[in-house]
Every structure is written in structure tokens, then in C-alpha cells.
Nucleic acid binder design. Structure first.
Lengths: 151, 151
DNA sequence: TTCTATAATGATAATGATTCCAAACATCGT
DNA sequence: ACGATGTTTGGAATCATTATCATTATAGAA
């Protein structure tokens, strides 16, 4: 944990930013909830517990800053709320999401299936891809199975 | 044009809704601006021109209704504004978007490149895909070329 | 046609997410 | 330590969207 915070501190400092107590508290919350896709509001509430004097705007700014530094990934599932995920070293490319419209669960696919498509975009459209977002809405296996046993 | 309005009228009526003058004006604006990705505010301003007495809430309500009926598709590019696209009969599947982070332009790809991926999802993950969203952020050809001539 | 029940509308208030701004803070040269 | 300069902060403001509510329009029954 401390090692990862130290690493992020380095990343900030290399760009001329400081790891202030507020930023550190925010990063700690992200590290402790690495599995979840937290919204800024979620992060804010959790940070409040360890640093009650923090302001919501600071959390937004910190998340935005970390996003620019590629420490976190800003996600958008179409519900009007931005969510933030820590990027692990291994995931240079984004993973994709399977969002179940029945139970609301979200599963991640860590494979990146879009590399051939991105190459095609560069060649056929002259479009240089920096980032992408791919989400699927549908019915997850669990809901499918319970639905079958119901009917 | 009239034929398409008539068709939408049928769709509304089949679900017990009426094509009121306000809804018709909204649909006309969408038909006349089919190429664009209009925000609710955009639609509102355009509808005002042909039906000045309309309220913003009605435009929002109408767009939401049309979205539920799958007449329009509600898009979200992460800029905090929902945008609405008419769905054409041919596009059962969504098209994809190339969003330029430099000039903000947006290009559409009408091909659906995800069909093989969706099949894989069904088989490997047991996930039944209903809908998907694929957006690429990057630098468009035009910006790339002008950037090269600048430097 | 007239009455009645229901759906739809427009104005405005409320909400939720995000951003702006003046004040607090830290850093550096003196 | 002291002031100048730029950074960071928290609260207030803003923007998009949704809910409320009183009013109006509509369709069907009598």
C-alpha cells in the first residue's frame, strides 16, 4: 500500500504536483476500493470518513488530475455519472464492461479485443486512436439461468 | 418525411401514446437534423422556432419517451450532455463514434464491427448482448495533417 | 353535444453532478 | 523571517436534468 502511494507521489511530483494530505486521502480510498467503480460522490463520502474537512471540489479535482496522469481511468457508463478506476500497470489498454440490465451487475473483461479495429481505423479513416470505450448492455449468465428456472 | 412521421405516430399509438403537436414538432426537428447529434437543449431551441410555446420539460419528456420506444437513441459522450439520434430502420445495431480530442469533431462509422465479439461473449461469458456502445477518442485526420504542417 | 376521466403540457422548483472563485497555503529568493 | 508568486482548497455557483403541480387538451360515455 505505502509503496503504491509512494509511486503515485513520484508521478505527481514528476509533473510538478504535490501529494497533499487531501490527495493522499483520496488515493488511499481508491486503493482500498480497487475492485469497485466509484463515482466522485462515492469517493467523497469515503474520504470524508478519514479526512472530514475535505471538500467535494477537491475530490473532483484530484480525480481529474489523477486521470490526466493516467493513474486512474475515468469511465462513463451512460448514466450521467463519471466513475474512476485505478489503472494497474498491466492494463495499458482499457478493459471492457458487461453491464446487466436486469440485476445491474457489472463484469469486466480484461482482454483487449479492439486492437485489430484500432489498426483498421488508423489505416482506413486516418484516425489516431488514443483511447476507447466499449460497454455491452445485456443479460448476465446468472439472470439468464434464474429466469429459465422461473419460467 | 410525412411517411416517417406517420410511422412514428403508429409506434406511439401502439403503446397508448398520442402524437401531440408538441411531440410532432420535436420529431420534425429530429428528422430535419438527422445528421447531427442534438442535445436536448439544441432540440429545444430548434423546436421553439416552429412551436414557440413549447416548454423545455416537454422536450425532455418527449425525447425520453422516444428513447423508450427506440425511436431515438440516447447517447452520452462523457461531456455531461445527453444527445439524441434517430434510429434508422437499417441500424438495428449502433454505429460507432470517432471523437477527436483536438477539434471536438465527431465522425460516425456505420459498420458494425462487434458482431464477432458479441458471439464470443455469448459463448465464453454466457452474456446475452442487447446493446453496446463503442467510442474512440483520438486525433482525426484533419487535425493530424494540420499539426504536421505546423511543426 | 356535454360530462367525466385521463393524459399531456408549461412554468417553476428541486436535484445531482461538476466547475468557478476568493481565500488559505506552500515555496522560493532575499 | 518576509514578501512575492503560484498552487491548492472549500464553499458557492452553474449547468443539465427531473419532479412537482396547477392547468389545458383529449377521448370516450351518456
Amino acid at each position: 500500500m505505502e509503496a503504491r502511494i509512494e509511486k503515485i507521489k513520484q508521478q505527481l511530483q514528476s509533473q510538478g504536483y504535490k501529494l497533499t494530505p487531501q490527495r493522499e486521502a483520496t488515493v488511499r480510498v481508491l486503493l482500498e476500493n480497487e475492485e469497485d467503480h466509484l463515482s466522485a460522490e462515492d469517493v467523497f463520502m469515503l474520504v470524508k470518513e478519514i479526512a472530514p474537512e475535505i471538500g467535494l471540489a477537491t475530490v473532483y479535482r484530484t480525480l481529474e488530475l489523477l486521470s490526466e496522469l493516467h493513474v486512474v481511468e475515468k469511465l462513463n457508463f451512460g448514466d450521467g455519472v463519471a466513475r474512476y478506476d485505478l489503472r494497474t500497470d498491466s492494463s495499458k489498454h482499457h478493459h471492457h464492461h458487461l453491464i446487466c440490465v436486469q440485476c445491474g451487475s457489472m463484469e469486466e473483461i480484461m482482454e483487449d479485443w479492439l486492437i485489430p479495429l484500432e489498426e483498421r481505423l488508423e489505416q482506413e479513416y486516418g484516425f489516431h486512436v488514443i483511447d476507447h470505450r466499449l460497454d455491452f448492455q445485456g443479460i448476465c449468465r446468472r439472470c439468464r439461468e434464474s429466469r429459465e428456472s422461473d419460467e
